[in-house]
């Protein structure tokens, strides 16, 4: 599989190339491939033999009822949980356990279901934290205000402003994030993930708690990000309407088992899905 895709500048590329600089590259591997992932807590098997892949530039949804194992899966990919078996492959590199602290360097970013922002920091500082992984100037250089540190900060501020303007939160950058409305905080969370220019972005319930208007806005952002940067997106979401509209392919989990996988059209027709998920939800 060798396709020419548009992707984000990788972490190692020249810094300051901007969030939306488009670099053509050939990739032979999927952005993410899971192979036989198993996970259990105590006696409960949260994930059983899950395999699937995400192609570069694809929006890949994972749906399923509460407790199906969606968030567990994202946590395995993030390295927060250690899978009992199976491998995670990122851009061709295989991991038995994802190193959580190097996630950003590998080119993976995520948002959090329950908004894991830093309430004691401003929106700008929150977003800039997404760039900490590639920062080179040390504490001493920063404290002494050496020019390398100053220009690095300036560059970061520029990138933060750029991404904030794109998401329409440029006006609140200097506000403490805890004083912002929930919908705006969700955008800050997204900005913090995007500013790192990841190749794979995991969105854990980005629509949860949003109003209808905010949902539409968020969906537009997600699509625009993909279209402009060609990054791969894993989307965990309860709002089926949003999922059907946004995703290229959908995997359905139920009790830790993948029961279906396919395009929105296929999933809508799948009897197993209707019974286990949509049916349960309707009942």
């Amino acid at each position: 599989m060798s396709t020419t895709v548009v992707r984000l500048a990788a972490a190692g590329d020249a810094p300051g190339s901007g969030v939306f600089s488009v670099a053509a590259a050939t990739t032979s591997a999927p952005a993410l491939a899971l192979d036989g992932i198993c996970l259990s807590f105590g006696g409960i098997r949260a994930l059983r033999d899950i395999s699937f892949d995400v192609a570069p530039g694809e929006i890949r949804a994972i749906i399923g009822p509460n407790g199906a194992g969606k968030s567990s899966l994202v946590n395995v990919i993030s390295g927060l949980y250690r899978a009992d078996a199976g491998t995670v492959q990122i851009a061709g590199q295989a991991f038995a356990r994802m190193p959580a602290s190097r996630l950003a360097k590998i080119g993976v970013a995520r948002t959090f279901q329950n908004l894991a922002l830093f309430p004691g920091l401003t929106a700008a500082q929150n977003i800039a934290s997404g760039l900490a992984f590639r920062r080179r100037s040390g504490l001493l250089a920063q404290v002494l205000g050496l020019s390398a540190a100053r220009s690095e900060s300036a560059r970061e501020d520029e990138e933060v402003r750029e991404i904030a303007a794109f998401l329409g939160i440029g006006g609140v950058l200097d506000r403490l994030v805890s004083t912002l409305p929930y919908g705006v905080q969700k955008q800050v969370d997204l900005a913090r993930a995007l500013v790192a220019e990841p190749n794979l972005l995991m969105l854990d319930e980005p629509m949860a708690g949003l109003t209808v208007t905010e949902k539409a806005e968020m969906a537009a952002h997600i699509r625009a990000v993909r279209d402009r940067t060609g990054l791969a997106i894993i989307l965990i979401e309860h709002d089926i309407g949003v999922v059907m509209e946004l995703s290229d392919r959908i995997a359905v989990l139920d009790h830790g088992v993948k029961i279906a996988d396919g395009t929105p059209v296929e999933i809508r027709r799948d009897p197993e899905v209707i019974r286990a998920y949509l049916g349960a939800e309707a009942a």
């Binding site: 602290s101 996630l103 830093f118 500082q125 992984f133 404290v143």
Partner: peptide, 29 residues
């Protein structure tokens, strides 16, 4: 100076949500 620097921001990030800080690439340790 430390508190106002990026390192100071990292410090607060680790305080406020250590796991999130780690996952987004703040050098927690």
């Amino acid at each position: 100076r430390i508190v106002g620097s990026r390192a100071g921001v990292n410090l607060i990030a680790v305080r406020d949500d250590e796991t999130a800080a780690k996952v987004i690439g703040v050098p927690v340790l």
